[in-house]
Every structure is written in structure tokens, then in C-alpha cells.
Design a protein around this nucleic acid. Structure first.
Lengths: 139, 139
DNA sequence: CGTCCATATATGAAAAGTCATATATTCGCG
DNA sequence: CGCGAATATATGACTTTTCATATATGGACG
């Protein structure tokens, strides 16, 4: 007889968090090897191909970070020469520098390869999964 | 014409992270209202119904935290009277105090209600989703 | 226009997390 | 047994995140 499953083993939010963690682990290790922290990677990925700047608030939302955390992360990335701030009225638009864009390009390429491998392992279910995740994200 | 989707908008790992975040947002707000931080909740949930103690390492894995982070979180929760440590050889087994167990019970009840509401909103797809997440977690 | 309110970002002090390493404790094995 | 490698947890110095709040701009409306 299997014992009744403990709460946490069947709890959807735990499964989601663990799946997200597990799926990202390999790529996150690559990031670390390259000296890029996960939050910085998220900023780079969000800015990748985002022509004329994204605001601090938008970055916060997209990267799942609170606004003050984002402001300070941007401070550091700016100090590293990866991005630039441009105040436009009451908002601040962020753009990648050449160096930042090069790093973003390179990492996005790696990320795509990792994603392709992961999708291949779940080929039949992947499209449905993405759709479902989108539905969850939309509320 | 829709523009080509930006990388981050179709990247599986981003979708997973965002879905996890979005799905948890409402419950996390409830936790905050109750003065319980997310990492502490994860510990309580993991210990809920885990009879004779879980080790620090197991907690770290289940809660997606690194070991030193977990040790320090346990320090705080122990100081709040939620759990107890018992050294057993080279490992430390953690058990909930009565107070901790009461809090865990109460929060688990709330969590189940939230989960039920979320599952209801995706009734057809939910079982497949859980199975798929488990597959991703298993590697 | 000026005053009041909402929105966008920044900042300072405190809390939590991280990395490297210290401290035990167990295990394999000569 | 006793010694070295492996495993489990703890701790200290440092970095990042958070919470509360400050600053600054845009908007609505008298």
C-alpha cells in the first residue's frame, strides 16, 4: 500500500515551483559559469530585441522582481557597462549597451538550445503546456 | 501583422517561472497578511504530516533553498517557536512544535482551498498538467 | 495656472541570502 | 582500532533583497 501522499507532494503550486526550478537548473549553472546572475540574465533576456527601451516598472514585472530590487540591479548592471538609463519624464527607459546586447545575444542563443532540448524531451505535450502556462499567467 | 514574438515571451523557462509566480500570487498575499514569509511557509508545508522529522538537507531540496539559507531560516523559525532541532548523528532532524503544527495545519487548509479554485479553472487540463510537471521535475 | 492626487523611480536602514569554509560525524579499509 | 575521505550541518564575511519612504513628474480640476 502506498501511504497517502503528503500534502506538498501533490500541491500544484509546489509542483510548478519545483518544475520551474528543475527545468532551469542546467541553464542556471551555465549562467553561473559565465559569471551572470539569474536576475541579471532575466533583464538581459527581457531587453533582448526590445528596440527602444523598456521602463523599470516593465522590467520588474517581466522579471518577477520588486521595483526597488530592480532599480538596484540596474545600478549594478549599469556600472558593469551592460545597459544605460535614459530618463523620459517620470519614467526611466533602459537600453542595452553594445556590450550588453552582445552578452544578451550570446546567452539567448544558449538558452534557445537548452529550451529546444527540453522541448524535445516532451515533444507531444509541449505546445499544450505552453498554452496552459499562458492561461495560468493571464489569471 | 503581429510582430515576431520577442524571445522572452515564448521561452519555456520564462513561462514556467511566470506561471509559478502568477499562480502563487494570491496565496502569497494571504501568507503576508498572516505574517508568514514564503520560505517559512514552504518549510511548514514540507513538515506538515511528516511524522518523525525531516533533515535539513531534505528541507533544502524540497523548498528549493540552499543549505546555509535553510540553516538560517530554521534558526529563525526555531526562535519563533515553530520547530525544534534534534541532532541525530551527523544530521539534524526537524520537527514542528505544537504551535508550528497548528500554523501549518491552518495554512495547508487555506492552500488546499486556493489550489481547488485554481484547478477548477483548468479542470480538463489539470491532471495532465500535474503529470507533465512531475515529468519535468524528474528530469 | 496652482493645488491635490496618482504614477514612476530612487534610496536608506534592516533582513535575508550566498559563498567559502569550519566543525562534526560516519564510513571504508589497511 | 585509527586514519583519510565523504557527508551533514553550521557559521562568518559579504552581497542582494526588502520595506518603508523620499523625490520627482504628469494629470485632473477648481
Amino acid at each position: 500500500m502506498t501511504p497517502p501522499p503528503r500534502f506538498v507532494e501533490d500541491y500544484l503550486l509546489a509542483l510548478l515551483a519545483q518544475a520551474s526550478h528543475a527545468a532551469s537548473a542546467a541553464f542556471h549553472a551555465r549562467l553561473k559559469a559565465r559569471g551572470v546572475a539569474v536576475p541579471a540574465w532575466r533583464v538581459l533576456a527581457t531587453l533582448h530585441g526590445a528596440g527602444e527601451g523598456v521602463t523599470v516598472g516593465q522590467l520588474g514585472q517581466s522579471c518577477l522582481m520588486q521595483q526597488p530590487t530592480m532599480s538596484k540591479l540596474l545600478d549594478r548592471m549599469q556600472a558593469e557597462g551592460l545597459l544605460a538609463r535614459a530618463r523620459r519624464g517620470r519614467q526611466t527607459r533602459i537600453t542595452l549597451t553594445e556590450e550588453g546586447a552582445a552578452l544578451a545575444d550570446s546567452l539567448v542563443t544558449e538558452a534557445r538550445a537548452h529550451e529546444a532540448a527540453l522541448l524535445a524531451r516532451h515533444a507531444e505535450a509541449a505546445p499544450a503546456l505552453k498554452a496552459l502556462l499562458r492561461a495560468i499567467i493571464s489569471g
